[in-house]
Design a protein around this nucleic acid. Structure first.
Length: 231
DNA sequence: GCGACAG
DNA sequence: ATCTTGTCGC
């Protein structure tokens, strides 16, 4: 077997991993969309530092008050990972650390912004969807670049959007989160509709390209990693 | 066979 | 993601 989880027992070939994704993708729900007021929102990010064949991954989760962006809680986890980055299989690399951090949380956010794709994925199960189905909570995928699908050009003004399509199927929204910057690739992860996903992300964008929860999580893990590497 | 390719 | 210096634009 070519690739495996950090847990020694399970072997994972690309084929097996892809089949598992297809299975889990059937559990993704976008219709029973999230229809309550968002009060608490979470953002995730993972950063790495290389150690030869392995990598030390640091996953961070920031939980904040929606709108005021006041941080309520911040948790993190560190893990050695051997699963390589393979386009389409990112969740097998990042999910274990992310779930370790998740286990440390006290607060229960209404919805999650995850760094990576949701259903805008070859088998409709990007990291945000995989994570969402696993914890059975609403998630939205926020990717800084395109994994799959195609789209037209969009206006340079903040707030402009264009659908992201795979053939005839709409799998996400390309969103200009700030004027004159590269757009974000938004797709529902789990328990949110496609329309809501981009609306919610835009509502989290202040004066930066990244929505506040993701930006905070990114800053968090970046600083954490520097601190951890010093010891 | 040749490109494309989240983080 | 990470490696890396200066540099162009709002």
């Amino acid at each position: 077997m070519l690739y495996q989880f950090s847990s020694e027992e399970d072997n994972f070939s690309y084929h097996n991993a892809a089949e598992l994704q297809k299975q889990l993708a059937e559990k993704v729900r976008l219709n029973d969309f999230y229809d309550q007021d968002i009060r608490i929102i979470a953002g995730t990010d993972v950063s790495y530092s290389r150690n030869g064949k392995y990598s030390t991954a640091v996953a961070g989760i920031i939980i904040m008050k929606y709108g005021s962006w006041e941080v309520i809680e911040a948790v993190y986890a560190v893990k050695e990972i051997s699963f390589p980055y393979i386009p389409g299989l990112l969740s097998f690399r990042e999910l274990p650390v992310l779930l370790d951090a998740y286990d440390k949380m006290k607060t229960k956010p209404d919805i999650w912004l995850v760094d990576g794709a949701g259903i805008a994925h070859p088998r409709r199960l990007g990291l945000a969807s995989h994570f969402g189905v696993t914890i059975d909570r609403p998630t939205i995928g926020v990717a800084k670049s395109r994994l799959t699908g195609h789209h037209m050009d969009l206006y340079l003004e903040k707030g402009s959007t264009v659908p992201l399509r795979d053939r005839a199927e709409v799998i996400g929204t390309v969103l200009r989160s700030r004027t004159n910057v590269r757009p974000l690739y938004i797709s529902p992860g789990h328990l949110v509709s496609l329309e809501q996903a981009s609306e919610i992300v835009l509502s989290c964008c202040t004066r930066y390209r990244l929505p506040e929860p993701i930006r905070a999580a990114h800053n968090f893990v970046t600083r954490l990693k520097a601190k951890i590497l010093m010891q």
